[in-house]
Amino acid sequence: MNVLTRMWKREWPLHLMLLPGILLVLIFCYVPMAGIIMAFQKYIPNKGMFGSPLIGLKNFQLMIDYPDIGRIFFNTVYIAVMKIIAGTIVPITIAILLNELRKEWIKRTFQTLVYLPHFLSWVLLSGILVDVLSPSSGIFNQLLGLIGIKPIFFLGSNDWFPYVMVVSDVWKEFGFGTIVYLAALTGINPSLYEAAEIDGAGRIKQTFHVTLPGMMPIIVLMFTLNIGNVLNAGFEQIFNLYSPPVYERADIIDTFVYRMGVQQAQFGFATAVGLLKSIVSFIFISLSYILAYRAANYRIF
């Protein structure tokens, strides 16, 4: 007991600092989980969650029978997987290129510039993208016109929309990922580069035989942890940029749940879809942590 008392006296300020975060998680993450019951109800707003009649698994049956549910799940996985792959390759490439810069001020300036979009909300960035990609007045289409290419309606075309989402997401987030991989580069022993240079290896061979193998543990770790996001294609981004003409390729689980639950007031049906997504995401997240532990010896506890 004396040991525990001394530990508490020494560490209670740290626990106090954690209290606001714990309260936020409880209020916004755990308390709302009571709403899961709506997935098994014919929810009636004036009767509330605990007064609406139970209907068992009918909402899940409606979800299975919904004609577009397969396409919605495919869109979600398709966009999310492309974001994971591109969001892994681009930061690694930029980190390696930045590491090759010898002038420190150029390196720090570029690193700051690519990191800035990470702090901007999708509400702001979506307005910028709408202006830049406008088929009539957007600077991108004006540049295409100079080389004889007809204007492309990037945000209104089912063929282009998913790729615009991937490219814009990478543009926003690759600066943050670059910092992670730059930190991994600092852990590589400089003597390995000296030995490779003595053996006659140029910068490109050093990259493939020293740099990338040295980064591989953090690359494997980040990639496996991202597996848990395979059903998170980016609600805020797509919600601010999509429109009915591109629902065929742009509609994902989160936007579908929003439309069914908030706009069409099918609360039980929307909750059932969201609950299924949460269950599948939990399985993927658990799998990603198992893979991260086996591949990179990463563990939470």
Rank of each mutant, 00 (worst) to 15 (best):
K103F: 13
M63N: 00
G51W: 06
F74V: 10
I55G: 00
G35Q: 03
R71T: 12
L23I: 15
D65T: 10
P32A: 12
L101V: 15
L24I: 14
L62A: 15
A80I: 08
P32S: 10
I27W: 07
I72A: 05
I94T: 14
T93W: 12
G70T: 11
P91E: 04
L101D: 10
L24Q: 03
I64H: 08
K103S: 12
A86H: 13
L57S: 06
I55L: 04
I96P: 02
P67F: 01
T88Y: 03
I72L: 07
G70P: 03
L26M: 15
G35S: 12
Y30P: 00
P20A: 09
G35K: 00
Y43M: 09
N99P: 07
T93S: 09
R102T: 14
V81E: 01
P20C: 06
K58N: 09
V90I: 15
I89Q: 03
I64Q: 08
P20N: 04
I84N: 01
N75D: 02
M49G: 13
G48M: 09
P53F: 00
K83Q: 12
I55R: 01
F60H: 02
L24V: 14
N99A: 11
L24F: 10
P45W: 10
Q61G: 10
N46I: 12
T76C: 01
T93Y: 09
A95F: 04
K103D: 05
V31A: 14
T76H: 02
Y66F: 08
I22S: 14
D65M: 06
E100I: 13
V25M: 13
K103I: 14
K58F: 01
C29S: 15
P32R: 06
F74C: 03
I84S: 03
F60L: 05
L62C: 06
F40C: 03
T93N: 01
R71H: 08
I36M: 15
Y66I: 03
L101H: 09
Q41F: 02
A34S: 11
I55S: 01
A80N: 03
G35V: 07
N59K: 03
N46P: 04
D68S: 13
D68F: 07
Q41H: 02
A39D: 03
V25R: 02
L98N: 04
S52G: 06
Y66K: 04
K47D: 14
V31E: 09
F40V: 09
K47N: 13
L24N: 02
R71L: 10
F28W: 09
P32I: 09
K47R: 15
I44N: 08
I69A: 02
I79S: 02
E104I: 15
F74P: 01
I85H: 05
N59Q: 11
P91N: 07
M38G: 01
F73N: 07
E100C: 12
Y78L: 06
A80S: 15
R102E: 05
I22Y: 11
C29N: 13
